[in-house]
C-alpha cells in the first residue's frame, strides 16, 4: 500500500467522483422522472409521442444509469492507475 497521504488523496478523489455521479443519478430519476415530471411533461420530444417527464421515467433514467456505471468504472480505473502499487500485477491472475 502507498503512503497514507496518497491513500487519503485517492479516497477524497473517490468521494468527489461519487458525489458528482450520484447527483446525476438523483437528477435523472427522482428529479426528471418524478419531482419535475409535471413541468417536463409539457414538453414533447420532437417527432415522437413522448412527453419528456414520462420518457425520463420509463427510458431516459435507465439509459443514464448505464452510462453512469461505465463512466464510473472508467474514471475509477484511471484513478487507480494514478496511485502506485506493486501488487497490481499479481491481482490480474485469478
Amino acid at each position: 500500500m502507498g503512503s497514507s497521504s496518497s491513500a487519503d488523496r485517492y479516497w477524497r478523489a473517490n468521494l468527489k467522483l461519487l458525489a458528482i455521479l450520484l447527483a446525476i443519478w438523483f437528477t435523472v430519476s427522482f428529479g426528471f422522472g418524478i419531482l419535475l415530471r409535471d413541468t417536463l411533461d409539457t414538453i414533447r420530444i420532437p417527432g415522437t409521442g413522448f412527453k419528456l417527464g414520462f420518457w425520463f421515467a420509463q427510458q431516459g433514467s435507465i439509459l443514464s444509469f448505464v452510462v453512469l456505471v461505465f463512466v464510473y468504472a472508467k474514471l475509477m480505473n484511471r484513478l487507480d492507475d494514478s496511485i502506485e502499487d506493486e501488487s497490481d500485477e499479481s491481482e490480474s491472475r485469478p
Binding site: 455521479l21 443519478w25 433514467s61 435507465i62 453512469l68 464510473y72
Partner: peptide, 21 residues
Amino acid sequence: GYDGSVYLMGWTGGYVLLALL
C-alpha cells in the same frame, strides 16, 4: 402506465448504487 415507472427506475437505479457504493 406511468405508475409502473417505479419498477423500471427502482430495479435498474439500484445497480448504480451497487456499482458505486
